[in-house]
Amino acid sequence: MKIWVFAEDAAGSPASIALEMLTKARSLGGDVAAFFVGPGSDSIWSALGSHGATTVHHLDPGTALPSAAAAAALADLIGAGDLVLFGLAPTDRDVAGRLSARLGVPVLSNAVDIVVGDSVAAVNEILGGTTLVETAFTGSGPHLVVVRPKSFVAESGEGGTPEVIPVPMPDLGHAGSAVIVERHEEPAQGPKLSEASVIVSGGRGLGSAEKFGMIEELAGLLGAATGATRAIVDSGWVPYAMQVGQTGKIVKPNVYIACGISGAMQHLVGMKDSTTIIAINKDEEAPIFGVADLGIVGDVHKVLPKLIEALKAK
């Protein structure tokens, strides 16, 4: 079985999820190839190679939204029994969906593990991560799986420089005609959310956008990144780049501090695997306490200022 890993460019490096998936693919044995979308560079090839790719197929989409072209190109490359891994990220999901429809094969999404035996199966978490479901492909493949970030730890191995094979942009007419006319980065201060070892997150319990200042101040003192629930992202208090959860970032820091966050299932799946979880919530029954190592039943407007003062005094 050949394993393909979809890898998108992330500011001049392969997306970290791609390196995580390559590491897993390597452990499953067999031939591992990467399908890279972006401008590409020698440092990217060597990162993909050291994580397990022996060949890299390289599609440079220019300003086109790459989804349709990448799906069409991949459809021509992959063979019947192959396993193709995508990350739970926007372009990965676009390509996985289009490829699935193009080939008429299912795609299993939200996988936290992949099991290869007599058949290929993906493991999913449901009900806020309390229950695991193992689903197997019954057809002959190719098997498409969308993997949740941080399910596997990226580790480089022995691999050397991979063979790089350019992939021409297929002409798909109208279906491939979406173009990116502008790109915007919303720079976050401090450490990156997905890499931070400490994260301080705020939710609707803060009461107002201004009070997110307390989260920033605490994070500054701890050298932490700031996170948020979807509720306050949708309300426009903070940018989407800060969202933690099923439809935001999946994080596994050493310490996660949840302030005024109820602990909805969709938030929990994004942070419940943190090593130590501290929660402050005034509702004793809040579900966040179900995963917290230390739960403070209290008012964020009282606890946080005192915590900030105590840390400043140190």
Binding site: T131, V291, D293, I296, V297, K302
Partner: peptide, 25 residues
């Protein structure tokens, strides 16, 4: 596709809860 198995996930050990009376920080 076919569901092979549904099983409970490994549980996190229960934590400690402290009611704030001014010193919980």
């Amino acid at each position: 596709q076919k569901i092979n198995e549904v099983r409970p996930a490994p549980e996190r050990a229960a934590g400690r809860k402290v009611v704030d009376e001014g010193e919980a920080h």
